[in-house]
């Protein structure tokens, strides 16, 4: 865990003496109590069929402060942030922003709960930015494979990508890479494992 004194998105303090709703309100300015459980968010969610907790159920567990069940659910990692729910909520609530905030809480409090492939992807992606300022896709895929253990997925697509000139083989670093490193340090990055 990082011990940076820089402001984190979440206020410091022992998390468990406050309700999850209060934490969410703090970070997003959104009060989960506002949601009246109409279910419109889940009705349009492209990932609903794969989620054990649908979008409105995620908000419901928040209202009930069922912290363990909610933070351990894979569903919060399945959200694509497609903004369909946020666009459609008749109550001007923002489930996509709430789910992002929940992910951030999991990363800070119990990063072991992040599904391996998802955490491997985010770690590989952010490492690319930290190293070069930009994402070097070949490096991203290689690093993702090592972290996720999905070594053989998509190997057959490499020749096709190369033949089409779609894969750069060496990264190009931006000039002011120190800017990026400082941004990462100061944002007190909590890296998924």
């Amino acid at each position: 865990m990082s011990t940076s004194s820089q402001p984190l998105a979440l206020s410091a303090g022992t998390p468990h003496n406050r309700s999850l709703s209060a934490q969410i309100l703090d970070v997003t300015g959104l009060d989960p109590a506002r949601c009246y459980q109409c279910g419109k968010c889940s009705a349009g969610c492209p990932m609903a069929s794969e989620m054990d907790l649908k979008t409105h159920e995620i908000i419901r567990l928040l209202q009930l402060d069922m912290r363990e069940r909610l933070l351990a659910s894979e569903s919060i990692w399945m959200c694509l942030t497609c903004e369909t729910c946020t666009t459609r909520c008749p109550n001007v609530f923002d489930p996509a922003a709430v789910i992002d905030a929940l992910r951030e809480i999991v990363l800070r409090e119990n990063p072991g709960l992040v599904p391996r492939r998802i955490s491997a992807f985010h770690s590989a992606f952010l490492d690319q930015i930290r190293a070069n300022g930009r994402v070097f896709e070949f490096g991203l895929v290689a690093s993702y494979k090592l972290r996720s253990g999905a070594l053989f997925a998509d190997v057959d697509s490499v020749p096709g990508m190369l033949a089409r000139g779609k894969l750069a083989l060496a990264p190009r670093r931006i000039e002011a890479i120190q800017d990026i490193r400082r941004i990462f340090e100061q944002c007190a990055m909590e890296r998924p494992r």
Binding site: P7, L8, A9, V27, T81, D100, A101, R103, E104, L107, F121, H122, F125, L126, Q128, I129, G133, R134, V135, I174, D179, I180, C187, A188, M189, E190, R191, P192
Partner: peptide, 14 residues
């Protein structure tokens, strides 16, 4: 530099 994409907003709002 990279916009941070999904990996930034899923892990650190700032």
């Amino acid at each position: 530099a990279c916009c941070g994409a999904t990996s930034a907003h899923s892990t650190n709002h700032l």
